[in-house]
Amino acid sequence: MWDWYEFPSIGRTDLRDLKKAGDEAFKAFSRAYGESLENFFQPLLSFLVWFEKLLINSPWPVVMAVIALLVWAGSRSWQLVLATLASLALIGYLGMWENTMYTLALVSVATLVCIVIGIPFGILMSKSDRMQAIVTPVLDFMQTVPAFVYLIPIILLLGLGKIPGLIAVCVYAIPPIVRLTNLGIRLVDKDVLEAADAFGASPRQKLWTVQMPLALPNIFAGVNQTIMMALAMVVVAALIGVRGLGMEVLKAVNNQYITLGFMNGLAIMAIAIVFDRTSQKFGKRLQKHSEIIHG
């Protein structure tokens, strides 16, 4: 008799064997390659640690001055510089300086990694429809699979710590920059490209003199999104032992410390706003040539 109420599944024993087989296979892979992977990421780890130390061991006025300068260089807005200094002062006064520096270091390095890997991928995608067809579903996967799921293999391979945290952040944060680089290049005006062709520009010359400059505003929107998503991941990264504001939020959740939770949450938000406004204003300035229009 066909059972309409219970879905015909493969059965408990088979299922257990299936899971076991998958786990065993991955564990074998991890045993075989875990160490070489760790060695592979060693330079990245050293860089991250060096950057953290730099931020934490430098006198706080120097760090604040450098951040204020960077914000000014990006946005040319003194209001934003003042707001940045005020939030940093408050963060420091409330005892979150060190954790903020950890988070800042993680997000900066993650963004850098995303740019270095993401932009070339975006360029490759824009050059070939096949590449686009292959990469797009991978990006969809990276953005939709819950972060906790891909944390498992990362932990299995690399254990707890900064590098698995950094990788988790990058997996989640890299799609927008890849997508928007691809889109930006594909949206470049065909007439202008034809002109470059007519003047004998090689594919490389076309990329650097026409496609990249004209795609820059879109690429920059991608960088902005990447930073935002990296910040959104710091709490998840804290789950695998990354120090910083995220760790404090996690502590607050576990112990129902409302004030601690909000303080650190707001500190993350403050950093996010500073990053966002600065990069948006910088992106806008890149398009300045298109704003002034003949009247």
Binding site: D191, V192, F199, V210
Partner: peptide, 19 residues
């Protein structure tokens, strides 16, 4: 090489580099 050295083109929609 031919396009670079022997030809130059002017377009209906100008096709200038906006940046």
């Amino acid at each position: 090489q031919f396009r670079r050295m022997k030809t130059a083109m002017v377009f209906q929609k100008f096709a200038l580099l906006p940046h």
